[in-house]
Design a protein around this nucleic acid. Structure first.
Length: 476
RNA sequence: UGAGGCGUAGCGCAGCUUGGUAGCGCGUUUGGUUAGGGACCAAAAGGUCGUGGGUUCAAGUCCCGUCGCCUCAACCA
């Protein structure tokens, strides 16, 4: 018991102090460290490896849709931002600006990109001349900077990594389809790779991207019941195409304005993984993106044959494509168990003289903490199967946790009670801005997403006829 | 930007009220022992107390400024 307490002291209690738990976990598992400039973070190798796995999975999906990767400059002339009125208004407060370079004041200040619609729009205008140039689909993996007042590793930092896809199309219908197709890719990725169930749908006017016609989101529920906007896909209509002059000659010989989209996910997804699956012992990483999928802990490592058996097992798993590590350090087995659990490794194998003698290994899964003996022969197949099971079960467990915490409310009191209990609350909305603002004022919850296809009688605020059902929640 | 908390060894902290030799735990290093949920013994190294100024014979401790971090609130992926 004393030892158990000693362990508990290493990270804050997830139930008692979730924010502190989060900070403890990201630092102690070496996902990140703080940078010297406020709001900046160093993504350490263990954290970056998750990002690389996310990139690989995403790139495969993008390329299947004909999206090509490219890179656009970090610095954007300030004048570009003023071309789209809503866009500049939305982003102006958080743009960092370079005013001096080469020892002189610049003739035009340069924005450090907070997002790249303006510069990509400018380039698209050059590249798009004919209907034959469409659709144009590019994506970039890059850093962006938004000078946020309060920050937290992965969830909100001044500089963060993301991908931003930008497409231009000949017709409204095609652009809208692209917007929804990308949303669907994000949903499928979140569920199948990150094991995070998400609500998808459109954002209200108040919550949409500055300059978009419509913003669609994937919203995930964190352990504390708060919502995290985990990815967005924007239908930009002709707003940017008009502002940046993206025009093409149609096949009837008439000059037309294109329709554009943009969509992105960021390193915030790593925060979503941490806060969706984490438990009192630390991280729980889904196998698809876990940097290390399986750790082998030798028992009585100095006894003859143990290390050799562990190395043989490691080689076998590696050959089968499992990301595997052998913990050959001097720490005690118990110490290693706790350490690798904190780091969220999905499967641990304990292998000692007793097991080797019996031709077995002891497999412990991180998500349920269950241990089971398995034969050493055919280990690669059984570990891969176990990883797949963990992946699937993590999604189901997260879905169950979430669904139990989605409720309906008829009035403001019901919404307030719900969000205070860490729930997503569905309620009717008349559609007016005044009612939306009032909910935020009184409950600190915001409209996360339209619950599409659902209907109800009355607006929870004013009692007038409800035009929509909205999912309300407090959000990160 | 508003409110609160915190900066002392790599990490976590005590010491501050009432000024007087820089402490503890973990980790690290060295040697030895160690079998399945954070092992044990012995020895050692490790500090401009965030930073600038002030008060004082004397400041980690008191006063003023400043920087940073954490939490909450407002703004946002």
């Amino acid at each position: 018991m004393a030892k158990e307490n000693q362990f508990v002291e290493q990270i804050a209690d997830i139930n008692a102090d979730f924010p502190q738990w989060y900070t403890d976990v990201v630092l102690k598992t070496k996902l990140v460290d703080y940078g010297p400039v406020k709001g900046t973070m160093v993504i350490r190798p263990y954290g970056y490896a998750i990002w690389e796995n996310i990139q690989n999975e995403m790139n495969a999906r993008f390329k299947k849709r004909g999206v090509e990767n490219a890179y656009f400059p970090l610095l954007i002339p300030m004048s570009y931002f003023t071309k789209e009125a809503e866009h500049v208004e939305g982003f102006a407060p958080e743009v960092a600006v370079v005013t001096h370079a080469g020892g002189e004041e610049l003739s035009e200040p340069l924005a450090i990109r907070p997002t790249s619609e303006t510069i990509i729009g400018t380039m698209m205008a050059k590249w798009v001349q004919s209907y034959r140039d469409l659709p144009l689909k590019v994506n970039q993996w890059c850093n962006v900077m938004r000078w946020e007042k309060t920050t937290r590793p992965f969830l909100r930092t001044s500089e963060f990594l993301w991908q931003e896809g930008h497409t231009a199309h000949a017709s409204q219908q095609e652009a809208e389809e692209e917007t929804l197709a990308m949303l669907e890719i994000y949903k499928e990725f979140a569920e199948n790779c990150l094991a995070i169930p998400v609500l998808t749908g459109r954002k209200t006017e108040k919550e949409k991207f500055a300059g978009a016609v419509a913003t669609y989101t994937i919203e995930a529920m964190m352990r504390d019941g708060k919502s995290l906007q985990s990815g967005t896909s924007h239908y930009l209509g002709q707003n940017f195409a008009t502002a940046f002059d993206i025009k093409y000659l149609g096949n009837e010989g008439v000059l037309q304005t294109a329709y554009t989209t943009s969509w992105g996910v960021s390193t915030r997804l790593i925060g979503a993984v941490i806060m969706t699956h984490g438990d009192e012992r630390g991280l729980v990483l889904p196998p698809v993106v876990a940097p290390i999928q399986c750790v082998i802990v030798p028992i009585a490592a100095r006894k003859g044959g143990v290390i050799e058996a562990c190395e043989a097992l490691k080689a076998e798993l590696e050959a089968a494509g499992v990301r595997v590590t052998l913990d050959n350090t001097d720490n005690s087995p118990g110490w290693k168990f706790n350490e690798w659990e904190m780091k969220g490794v999905p499967v641990r194998i304990e292998l000692g003289p007793r097991d080797i003698e019996a031709g077995k290994m002891l497999c412990a899964r991180r998500d349920t903490l269950e241990k089971q003996e398995m034969p050493l022969s055919g280990a690669a197949d059984s570990v891969k199967e176990l990883l797949a099971t963990v992946q699937k079960d993590m999604l189901e467990a997260a879905r169950k946790r979430r669904d139990e915490r989605i409720i309906y409310a008829d009035d403001m009191a019901g919404i307030l009670a719900g969000v205070e209990a860490g729930k997503f609350v569905k309620a009717g909305w008349c559609g007016c801005r005044k009612c939306e603002d009032k909910i935020k004022e009184e409950t600190a919850a915001t409209a996360r997403v339209f619950a599409e296809g659902e209907t109800t009688e009355k607006c929870a605020v004013c009692g007038e006829k409800a035009a929509h059902v909205i999912v309300y929640a407090r959000a990160y």
